[in-house]
Design a binder for these strands. Structure first.
Lengths: 129, 129
DNA sequence: GGTATCACTTTCCCAAAGGATACCGATATA
DNA sequence: TATATCGGTATCCTTTGGGAAAGTGATACC
């Protein structure tokens, strides 16, 4: 009895909380895919067509090879981008967004919609003051 | 002339890139609101009703007062949550999600939809191997 | 032979995010 | 009088994210 009481105190909505973590995990997964300083720009850059490593780097000012390499690997692991090796000499490598990667599109658009409303709201407020 | 050539080399799709940053900023704004270790859980906790400080803290295991305090301030600044002081003795304080805060709902649902598909995909793959 | 390019990797470093712990003044409770 | 609760702060510490710079092996170009 005491234990249950204590649990209730520690987590009044513990029933809904258990439900919640089920919902929470996928949301965090999605956020992980998109957050970080470069991921979004790299994804966007690839939606405009296949690109080579240096090409992406030139398009995104400030992006170091270390970061680009790391992010591209993550995109590959998550099957959002694919890496193609052509045996020219020296080998040339192209990165391409996958069809699956393209399914991020509506999500990114939703983020943009909410984000631009928010941006306007905050700017409007700072003009009021 | 040379400068323009150089610009082209540095950023082959510079035309679309300029367009892109316009879209990029709001997306990053939206991501900022939701990313971080605790923001989502706090928002979710408040969608289940007004809560007091300690109450939120008890509901979310591992959340320190420092972090909770910081996140609640940010939520207030962004007008997603409101803080109500009641002059009981000692004063009691309640946090509540705002109507504006509730507009995050569809966005969070989109994140969840994509995230759970992704989760299934990755789990399915690891079972294949 | 010297320099440059491509696609990276490695090492070292710094700043931001976040955790642990202690503390605060006010008030209620035993 | 001692202890606990509330709504936080303050201080110190660790972890993580990310930047700077140099290097690598293979190849092309002058």
């Amino acid at each position: 009895m005491e234990i249950i009481e204590q649990d209730k105190r520690k987590c009044p909505t513990h029933v809904s909380n258990v439900e919640c973590t089920k919902h929470l995990l996928p949301v965090k997964d999605a956020l992980d895919i998109l957050s970080g300083k470069w991921k979004l720009q790299i994804i966007l850059s690839l939606t405009f067509g296949k690109k080579r490593f240096k090409q992406i780097q030139r398009e995104i000012p400030g992006l170091t090879p270390k970061m680009l390499s790391k992010e591209l690997k993550e995109l590959e692991i998550n099957e959002l981008a694919s890496r193609h090796v052509y045996d020219t000499s020296p080998v040339s490598i192209e990165y391409e967004i996958t069809p699956y990667g393209k399914t991020l599109r509506p999500l990114i658009e939703e983020l943009e919609k909410w984000g631009s409303k928010h941006r306007k709201r905050i700017i409007a407020r700072s003009n009021r003051d």
